[in-house]
Simulated assay, not measured.
Amino acid sequence: MALLHRATLRPTKLELLTTWLPGRPWYQGPAGVEVVRQGAYRFDDPAGEVGVETMLVAAADGPVHQVPLTYRAAPLDDADEWLIGTTEHSVLGLRWVYDACADPVYAAALAHAVLGGAGQAEQYFEVDGRREVRPPAMTIDVDGGGGAVPEVGAVRRVVDEDDTLIVTDAVELVVVRRPVAGASGARGATLRGAWDGQPTSMPLAYVRLR
């Protein structure tokens, strides 16, 4: 489960992405145009230390882009090139926001969600000591998972091209940066998703054992 906070962020996540996205090799859209959220889903960090959220965003009439994010209370070692920016969270304080593809917490969470068949985390708020569940912003399903999940290990290599390849000690993960219908699932166990305006479930990520 993912505990959320009713909070403000300055700058917002979308403001950070509006500045950061045009410099990515896989981005196809106008620069200087505010991006709009199309959907989002979260995974759990078992340690409860790192926020793990994936946002689907678009600018103007450009394609939808998938951006996994991790939110940390301190900088991630040796990951300066993957830092999207910092934001002041009104409840948690200063947070470092990373492109999660270089974050070992995200790699492990994605592998467990897909290979283990768990899918996205349930999201909730604490309200007067009660748990208030937040409805999911999009539908997620898994094809080819449901088996044993190895110890994922460290992120050894990240290849950031049209899609992003993440190589760890035990698995290879592919994050689809511009989801499209009809993509092949032959690349491994598959995470699929659908959101408002996109009712057909499309591949979002692939995971395979090394």
Rank of each mutant, 00 (worst) to 15 (best):
P136V: 08
G51C: 04
G153N: 09
V176H: 07
T168M: 03
Q28W: 14
G144M: 04
A170C: 07
G182H: 10
I140L: 14
G147M: 08
L92W: 08
V97G: 00
G145W: 01
A59N: 01
E126G: 15
R134M: 15
A109V: 01
L16S: 01
Y41Q: 12
Q66T: 05
E49Q: 12
G145Q: 03
V91D: 11
L9P: 07
A2H: 07
G146H: 07
G147A: 04
L56H: 04
E126A: 15
G197T: 11
A109N: 02
R10V: 06
Q198V: 15
D169M: 11
G62N: 01
V171P: 04
V133M: 15
K13L: 13
D141G: 13
R177Y: 07
R42L: 12
Y106I: 01
E49A: 14
A79M: 01
G185H: 00
A137F: 03
P63M: 09
T200F: 13
E53I: 00
P68H: 05
V176C: 05
A2E: 12
V52T: 07
T200L: 15
D141W: 11
D78P: 01
G144F: 06
D163R: 03
L56G: 07
V127S: 13
Y206G: 00
V64R: 05
D169S: 10
V35C: 13
A47M: 08
R134I: 14
Q198C: 15
L165V: 04
L191E: 03
D77I: 02
A79N: 03
D44K: 09
D143V: 14
S184Q: 07
L76N: 00
L83Q: 04
Y41I: 11
D169Q: 08
A102C: 11
R208A: 05
A111T: 12
G182K: 15
A189Y: 08
A59F: 02
V180T: 15
I166V: 10
V152A: 01
A2I: 06
A154V: 07
H65G: 01
D196I: 14
Q123F: 08
